[in-house]
C-alpha cells in the first residue's frame, strides 16, 4: 500500500529517468563518441556528465552522444544545445571541465568561455 505522498515520489523519481522518451525540448548535452573521441578520453567525460546530471536531478537535460564532427584533434568535444540559444562547442574536455560545464552552463546559464572552441584552441 502506497500513500499519496509515496505515489508522488515514485512519479517524480521515475519521470526523471524516463522523461527523455517524451519531452525532447530541454537542454541537450552531446558528447562526441567516435573512435577519435573515445581514444581522447570521451568515455570518462560522458560518465562524469551523466553522474552530475543525475546527482542534480536535472530531469529536463538529455545526455546524448554523436559521431565524429571532423575536428579530431580537439576531442573530446562536448556540445550544449539550450532551447532558443546558439549551440556552444567545448573542446578538449576532461572530467573536471565537464563538471564545470554542467554546473555553470547547463544549470546556471553561464557559458564557460575558456573551454569553448574559440578560446580552448589557442
Amino acid at each position: 500500500m502506497k500513500t499519496l505522498k509515496e505515489l508522488e515520489e515514485i512519479r517524480k523519481r521515475t519521470l526523471e529517468t524516463i522523461n527523455v522518451r517524451k519531452d525532447r525540448t530541454g537542454t541537450r548535452v552531446v558528447v562526441g563518441m567516435a573512435t577519435c573521441g573515445i581514444a581522447a578520453g570521451a568515455r570518462p567525460v560522458l560518465m562524469s556528465i551523466m553522474d552530475e546530471v543525475k546527482k542534480n536531478n536535472l530531469a529536463d537535460v538529455v545526455v546524448a552522444q554523436t559521431g565524429c564532427i571532423g575536428m579530431c584533434r580537439l576531442e573530446p568535444i562536448v556540445e550544449v544545445y539550450k532551447p532558443g540559444e546558439d549551440k556552444v562547442t567545448y573542446v578538449k574536455v576532461t572530467d573536471a571541465k565537464a563538471l564545470r560545464i554542467i554546473n555553470e552552463h547547463v544549470m546556471q546559464g553561464k557559458i564557460v568561455e575558456e573551454y569553448t572552441i574559440g578560446a580552448g584552441d589557442k
Binding site: L7, I10, R11, R13, T14, L15, I18, N19, K22
Partner: peptide
C-alpha cells in the same frame, strides 16, 4: 512506476 511517471493514477 513508468505509468505513474506519466501522470498515471493522478
Amino acid at each position: 512506476d513508468e505509468y505513474i511517471a506519466f501522470d498515471g493514477y493522478k
